[in-house]
Design a protein around this nucleic acid. Structure first.
Lengths: 463, 463
DNA sequence: GTGTTGGCGGACAGCCGACAA
DNA sequence: TTGTCGGCTGTCCGCCAACAC
């Protein structure tokens, strides 16, 4: 207690007056600590975020979309922007920025992950101030990973947690099977660097891996319910870490009582407009799991979508998303944002179960076969490149059973995309699907895409 | 489930497409419900807020202080406004508004009370649109009321709640003392209209009133700790209601991950500036228990303070506050707000324990003897007028023991101000104190105040 | 008059293999 | 291979009066 900042503040109080400078130093220190005492483990953060989430590199260029930022606020406050929002004529629908700071966070109460970014508006790429990367690696997803959706038995007070066999064998330290029964103590850390101790035992008839003592404490503290997921990873130091993914139905944060939704929407626009006009940076929060769409888009990704893909009425495409996404109709306000590319594509979904999804998407959210074949780096966040899946997919597309396209799933355990029927029941809870064109169309568009690529490079567009 | 809005939305989903109009109607209905399903009981809300909190009347005129609003955000985000905030040259430090809407709320998780107000900027009093009051009474504090700070025993899992004798006799239905032991079932409702059932028993040696079965559920659900307070009231329909006041140490809401603090501060200023320029209304939240100072000040109160009180360097005054207030130094930014009356008085506290309190206050926050004698309506929110206390105080001020002034306490149980040493140990936890001038000064300033009042009315100021 | 403690009975948290999908 | 169940046991929740201040 004596060495904490709170302690210092407390002991300072009787010495009145302290200099303003001292007080400010302490306040700053306290503020930094209150956000997150220790820096968040990046691998665990990304494991919780899921393989489809990636963050822009420090120093890289992005487009910031105020509309998308506003959507994020609309989702968490459950209040869309009203007509009471002033116009900011000098704020474009997309603002080119350099990323000056990215910090990872997790909510103390819910473990919900989010990122804070500082964005510096720039007029052109020449405007970019070189930022040393301090040897920072691109955000990568952990290879030693498993994720399980909790059953009623896992969360009941009646017992412990049933560990899938392959998960226990891949991640946990090997048990001494000469013991009767084989038992060990697992010590794992969460996003807040809290330690949790679980008794890991291999018993029962038939034998299975279980977490018993300590498990119910964890379930209670994290308020886990059946349907939520837990995930374990081993990080670079091969330390065991544990994370949580809430079921989608659980709305993230309730409407805050701090600021009216209108003021929040206004705050977003005014902050961006002011930063753009003054060449100063502004700060945003990005909640990947609450946010309907990424609103800070890497420049490269944007250009590939806009210049590298020919989009025409009636064409079919694929899009990655998690199941049970709670997309709602949102205000696009074409008068406020003339010519905006944010959700400028009106789309129609094939599957009847998809009626609650967005019926408008942005060009960089969709996947056409040409973009997949030509630009495999789009999916570089995944352990095995998307391209590899596409090769496998080609054969399946000729499957005489199908109508010419197939569903593609994300296997969270191995962090790869899978084609066809879901091979493991256990992963149904966290599946994403993509619609693909017919084989003939694939062939045709691949050729067209290649032409577009040549055309783009000929025009000096640096993809 | 079938009659809830969620149910309607769910059953609507398969019927694709529904008209946009229908969807919007349902969304609006859902939004209204998500805020608060039933309207909050006003008496209970005010009981939780405490006797010093009052809200402006519907249709009345107020001054809105953007600085104060910003302070509220600074407290709940633990981030003060930085220099990255744009200037709004057309936004004055105080904005005259008509109150168009006041709704009471309580946080679903913490029961923290707050109010939402819609403010319509006006240029002068003649600009005011008459608002029917729908027979709304001014916010009054309940007369049948008691409040107890929870002990370690009250919150432990080892037992129940020990009810102070007078409280049980005044509020609870009378027990049948022929029973052995006398027992009854109490059914009470909280701010969210949830019902709680407590077994009320009179037993033990010596006999005392206890709440047993059902109590621990309540403590667990509300996450009460020793030091927090519970309060019971009987409303107009003599229904028993229960409320909660958290100990001050528990910070209200953690910094939200939705919006950066900077954007919030900007949002406040931009929303008010836009409303003022466009003659449109804007919406704010007011958290009386988190907020360091009221930032929506009734016009009458403001004028009494500014025109009715002569303030001079070195004068002494009183001020009401709750103990253990966690005031911190805040950014006043005289450059941004030239001539602002928000916290324009630099003050010094007598008691050494007060070092952490504000060292700047606004004129309408302080109580001088003249304001108390001349404008007793200032304290009309209290059951017995402040004036009555002042008469009692006069005698005590001559108490030869003292240094010429006395502490004045708020007795939460009887909702009155008390003078001198705290008469009941039990209320020490929720005491507020006032410093008063010496008897000679009281006499002198009272005469001066009378002159000021005459002068003010002579100048046509309508107090 | 009420906060805390020790005593005690019963509810349920939590460990186990059986069994079935 | 693993989700759920019935059986069993130990812990601690929660009701009680005694006692202290």
């Amino acid at each position: 207690m004596g060495t904490t900042v709170e302690g210092k503040i407390k002991t300072l109080q009787p010495q009145q007056p302290s200099t303003l400078l001292e007080e400010m130093k302490l306040l700053k220190e306290m503020q930094e600590q209150s956000g997150s005492r220790k820096s968040i483990n990046s691998e665990l953060w990304h494991a919780c975020a899921g393989p489809l989430v990636s963050l822009p590199q420090l120093g890289s260029l992005v487009y910031y979309f105020p509309q998308g930022h506003s959507e994020q606020v609309a989702v968490s406050t459950r209040r869309s922007a009203t007509s009471q929002i002033p116009n900011y004529p000098n704020l474009p629908s997309q603002l080119m920025c350099q990323v000056h700071n990215v910090t990872l966070h997790a909510d103390k109460e819910t473990d919900e992950i989010y990122a804070q970014m500082s964005l510096q508006p720039v007029t052109s790429e020449k405007d970019v101030f070189p930022v040393p990367d301090f040897g920072l690696k691109p955000s990568k997803h952990p290879s030693e990973f498993f994720c399980k959706t909790l059953t009623a038995s896992d969360t009941s007070t009646h017992g412990g947690f049933s560990v899938p066999r392959r998960a226990a064998e891949k991640l946990f330290p090997p048990l001494d099977y000469t013991m009767q029964p084989p038992t060990q103590e697992l010590v794992v850390r969460d996003l807040h660097d809290n330690t949790w101790t679980f008794r890991h035992i291999y018993r029962g008839q038939p034998k299975r891996h279980l977490l018993t003592t300590g498990w119910s404490l964890f379930v209670g503290a994290k308020r886990l319910k059946a349907g939520d997921s837990v995930l374990f990873i081993r990080d670079e130091k091969s330390q065991l870490l544990v994370g949580v993914r809430r079921a989608n139905r659980q709305q993230a944060t309730l409407p805050s009582s701090v600021l009216s939704a209108d003021s929040m929407h206004i705050g977003i626009l005014a902050a961006a407009a002011h930063a753009a006009a003054n060449r100063s940076s502004f700060t945003i929060f990005y909640n990947p799991r609450a946010c309907p769409s990424e609103f800070v888009v890497p420049l490269a990704k944007y250009r590939k979508a806009i210049y590298g893909t020919r989009i025409s009425v009636g064409m079919r495409f694929g899009m990655m998303f998690e199941t049970e996404e709670s997309g709602k109709r949102r205000d696009l306000d074409p008068l406020r944002w003339p010519g905006s590319k944010w959700r400028n594509l009106q789309v129609e979904w094939d599957e009847p179960g998809c009626v609650d999804k967005q019926n408008r998407v942005s060009p960089w959210e969709i996947e056409t076969p040409e973009s997949l074949f030509i630009f495999p780096s789009l999916t570089s966040g995944l352990k095995r490149p998307f391209l590899e899946c596409m090769f496998g997919l080609e054969g399946l597309l000729n499957d005489p059973r199908g109508s010419g396209w197939k569903l593609v799933y994300v296997d969270y355990e191995n962090d790869v995309l899978l084609v066809g029927d879901d091979p493991w029941e256990e992963f149904v809870g966290c599946v994403r699907c993509i619609r693909i064109l017919s084989p003939a169309e694939v062939q045709q568009m691949s050729e067209e895409g290649m032409k577009l690529l040549n055309s783009a490079t000929a025009h000096g567009i640096n993809i």
